Simulated assay, not measured.
Amino acid sequence: MAPPATRKRSPWARFTTWRRRRPFWGALILILGGWLVMRPVVGATSMLLSLGVGGVSAYVLGLGMIAAALTALFLPAQRHFPAIMAVLMSLASLPLANLGGWVVGMLCGVVGASMIFAWTPYSEAEVEKHNAREARRTSRQRAARSAKGSVAKGSAA
């Protein structure tokens, strides 16, 4: 069996590793909040023109929240400034964009941005501890498979 560094991993395992190194859930909730802020005014451009500044501000705030979430997701080292800006945009959406997406969008934005701001990456000790746990788990699984295989061979004879 190849060592863990060179062994080919499934796409789901690679995604899980990538997700654990980023403020994934906070960004996902913030994207939902930005969409909920924009959702009431998403429609035809003629509707946007009739709404005026209220419609444009909903687009600007919603897209700003989504951009902040994507920035924090793909550049986790730069997560603090986008999180602060996302909280400010979420709070500004209450009076400027249909009560902040009927308050739910504003709350999702504040919660998601707070989760992004509070997220910290794993330390080296935590990563080593996780890798050791994974190695123990795979060795137990291999031992169980080999024991199951020897029992099956013994009963067949």
Results as ranks from 00 to 15, higher is better:
Phe15Trp: 15
Pro3Asp: 07
His80Gln: 13
Gly55Ala: 00
Arg22Met: 09
Ser146Glu: 12
Ala83Trp: 11
Phe15Ser: 12
Pro76Tyr: 11
Leu28Gln: 12
Met89Glu: 06
Ala113Phe: 04
Asn131Gln: 06
Met115Ile: 05
Glu128Tyr: 11
Phe24Pro: 00
Leu32Asn: 01
Gly112Cys: 01
Thr45Lys: 00
Gly52Phe: 14
Val42Asp: 00
Pro11Phe: 14
Leu36Gln: 05
Val60Tyr: 00
Gly109Asn: 12
Val127Tyr: 11
Trp35Val: 13
Trp35His: 02
Arg22Ala: 00
Arg79Val: 14
Ala27Asn: 10
Thr45Tyr: 02
Arg39Cys: 08
Ile29Leu: 13
Val127Met: 10
Arg20Val: 00
Leu70His: 04
Gly52Cys: 04
Val104Ala: 11
Phe74His: 15
His130Gln: 14
Met85Ile: 02
Ala125Val: 00
Val37Phe: 03
Ala144Ile: 09
Val103Phe: 01
Tyr122Val: 03
Asn131Tyr: 07
Phe117Ile: 13
Gly62Ser: 13
Arg7Gln: 13
Arg19Leu: 09
Ile29Val: 07
Pro3Arg: 08
Arg7Ile: 02
Ala156Trp: 00
Thr120Asp: 10
Ala144Leu: 09
Leu49Trp: 13
Gly64Thr: 11
Arg7Tyr: 09
Ala135Phe: 01
Gly62Glu: 03
Leu51Ala: 10
Pro23Ile: 07
Thr16Val: 10
Val111Arg: 01
Ile116Pro: 02
Ala83Ser: 15
Phe117Pro: 10
Ala69Leu: 05
Arg21Glu: 13
Gly54Gln: 00
Gly154Ile: 05
Thr16Ala: 14
Ala157Phe: 09
Phe74Tyr: 14
Tyr59Glu: 01
Ser93Ala: 07
Pro11Ser: 08
Ala2Lys: 14
Arg19Pro: 00
Gly112His: 01
Thr16Ile: 07
Trp25Phe: 09
Asn131Gly: 00
